[in-house]
Amino acid sequence: MGSSPQSFEFPAWPQYGEEERNALNRALDQGQWWRIGGSEVDTFEEEFAEYHGAPYALAVTNGTHALELALQVLGVGPGSEVIVPAFTFISSSQAAQRLGAVAVPVDVDPETYCIDPAAVAAAMGPRTKAVMPVHMAGQIADMDALEKLAADAGVAILQDAAHAHGARWQGKKVGELGSVAAFSFQNGKLMTAGEGGAVTFPTRELYDSAFLRHSCGRPPTDRKYFHNTSGSNFRMNEFSASVLRAQLGRLGGQIDTREERWPLLASLLAEIPGVVPQARDERNDRNPHYMAMFRVPDLGEERRNALVDTLIERGLPAFVGFRAIYRSDGFWESAAPEESVEDIARRCPNSEALTRDSVWLHHRTLLGTEQQMHDIAAVIAESMAGA
């Protein structure tokens, strides 16, 4: 028999302890609570950049702003296009649209759920300024193929790494892949201060441009209000940075645990009739597993939704998968492509299917015990039989 809701005592999220408390007191006691006068944000940026193998990192207010700022310093604006996966959280497209650029959704791989390089190649045109692979649930997109496409076309890559803290591709960390990457520290993410974001950069020039634009165009040493560029206030505060420094210290051990648990859970899920777990590209040799994702092909959206409700009732932190971005009204409000919903849907069959049949479990489930992986699978199997 499966577990009752009361038996699922997964680790709480967020995780915190004396490290975070001490960090907050340290930020408080320095008497300067914004980044220009304090030291927590500067130190966190150095530590985060080093952890990810990046020359530079810039901390910002949230992950959506991280994407928007990164696109801006890469030259994205009105008249340009950004290729994004159709299956992603809508911030990926809205960051481009907020800058006046058209977001062009393309299909994803049906097994890894990451952007399909062949679909990217088909969508490239004279106005393409950037390609935005999303490392879905911690699975790094096919960066080998994407880097070649981008280099041949002379366009930039912006990695949406909101799910990929600590990930590695063929031994290289996210910041070592040679392109800009954007991260999120929202409350559910792999490390969090409630909100927050960061951008890693391969060059000093890009970092300097981003610093100006994230601080209203003002250099850090300016005292006479000379604003060198346009921009906004995307600065992170000292308290958030202090918490994130403590969270970064927890990240590696948590990834180790999830890397041990997911192969077991995935193998158990694969044994359940009708359940297909997210596949792993073995070139992604360290996956932080932001979500434990699986599909229930042919179940249909209504029954998938009912299945998720049942899983929640049984004590699992379960969620429906993302809706294809072009199937949300917000996508069409500004800077949308000159296509209909159905036009895009026809060239994005995998994203259409994932909209209807994908399910995910919060990553704290993968911090549970080996026995809990068996219990999770048992509950999903029983719920599937009922569905």
Rank of each mutant, 00 (worst) to 15 (best):
S93L: 12
A306Y: 02
G2F: 12
E18T: 07
M124H: 00
F294I: 10
Y207R: 07
T61K: 04
V104H: 00
P297H: 10
Q32D: 04
Q139M: 15
A387G: 04
E68F: 06
G125T: 06
R250W: 13
Y56M: 04
A49L: 08
F294M: 09
G171F: 14
H65C: 04
Y207F: 15
L251T: 08
F322D: 11
N350M: 08
A103M: 05
D375K: 05
P5N: 03
F89M: 02
V174G: 04
G194N: 05
L265A: 03
R356L: 08
A12Y: 01
P337V: 12
F87K: 02
P5D: 02
D375I: 08
M373G: 02
A54M: 04
S91C: 11
V102T: 14
A353W: 01
G166H: 00
V320D: 03
A162R: 00
T355S: 12
L206I: 02
W13F: 09
E333V: 15
S334M: 13
Q247S: 06
R261Y: 01
S179Y: 15
A198L: 10
S383H: 11
F319L: 07
E301S: 06
K224V: 13
A318L: 12
G125M: 10
G253K: 12
A59T: 07
D375N: 12
C114R: 01
E205Y: 01
L99M: 04
I325M: 14
R35C: 08
P55E: 01
V379Y: 03
P126R: 13
P337R: 03
D343K: 02
G175C: 12
A266Y: 01
S209P: 00
R235A: 14
H135T: 10
R303Y: 11
V155A: 03
S383K: 06
Q6I: 13
A182R: 05
H214L: 02
D256Q: 15
E45Q: 15
V108R: 05
P133K: 00
G166L: 09
V276I: 14
A335V: 05
A246H: 06
E9Y: 00
R283H: 11
M373R: 05
P273C: 07
V275S: 05
F319Q: 10
H163C: 08
P110D: 11
S80H: 10
D256N: 15
Q159A: 13
A266L: 05
I380G: 06
A161T: 01
R26M: 09
A246K: 09
Y56F: 15
E338V: 12
R364W: 07
A182V: 09
P14W: 07
E238R: 05
D144M: 04
R283N: 07
K129L: 14
G154R: 03
V108T: 06
M373A: 05
R258Y: 10
N350E: 11
A306R: 14
F48I: 07
K189D: 15
